[in-house]
Amino acid sequence: MRWAVIVFPGSNCDEDAALAIDRVLGDAVDLVWHDQRDLSAYDAIILPGGFSYGDYLRSGAIARFAPAVAGVREAVQRGALVLGICNGFQVLTEAGLLPGALLVNDHLQFCCELAELQVENTKTPFTLDYAAGERIRIPIAHRDGRYHADAATLTRLRREQRIAFRYVQNPNGSAQDIAGVLGANGRVLGLMPHPERAVAEWMRSADGARMFTSMHRFVEQQGASLAASAEGVGRLG
């Protein structure tokens, strides 16, 4: 399968994501510059962590206007997998591809630590390889990570089983301890924790690796890899 990692000028986890895919799966992965709209070659697209355009306004508020995000929107339409990590999650909510918003942490500080998560739904393309009710450890590193949505949205998310992960100990005041949510079609996941930083024991946890193996297995099982021509896609240094 073929992966894209979108690179905004202020992305800083783009190479980590590509490296994790290479470490865990050995799949083909391209770093795709933010001005590229055509993402039709990709089975899965990652919006990585970082500070897309500095995020001096609201995290992700400018990134949603990027050509690549228009491409992501089209990819969602055709059912490709989209994974937004940290800043990528913020971008997806700003773009309206996921419900809710990420507010500044309730303690108003940046917070970086290994967080324990409860896997809430193992029937998604991102969580197939986790066990039901399993607790995993994945690092968080953010200042604007407090998930917020109105009561009706939260109820709908719960009813539709679109809460993918919850924090075991809420680190930022997120509504209902939510760490990651799914889009309406179940093919989009946004989460604040960084699975790409937990793919080897020496990183303190290898639990993130199974998010990538899940996505890989889902795409392979679908059989029909979406038109995977690599032409015209340059790998960025």
């Binding site: 800083n12 986890c13 994790a20 962590g49 940046f110 970086c112 690092p139 590193a141 790409e196 990183m203």
Partner: peptide
């Protein structure tokens, strides 16, 4: 202090803050 710092970006931190020395691959 160091909870406010991103200690694991670049995924090379084998030993972060809190030990005698930090170790980076």
């Amino acid at each position: 202090v160091y909870r406010q710092y991103d200690t694991s970006v670049r995924t090379a931190t084998q030993v972060g803050p809190g030990s005698d020395a930090a170790v980076l691959r």
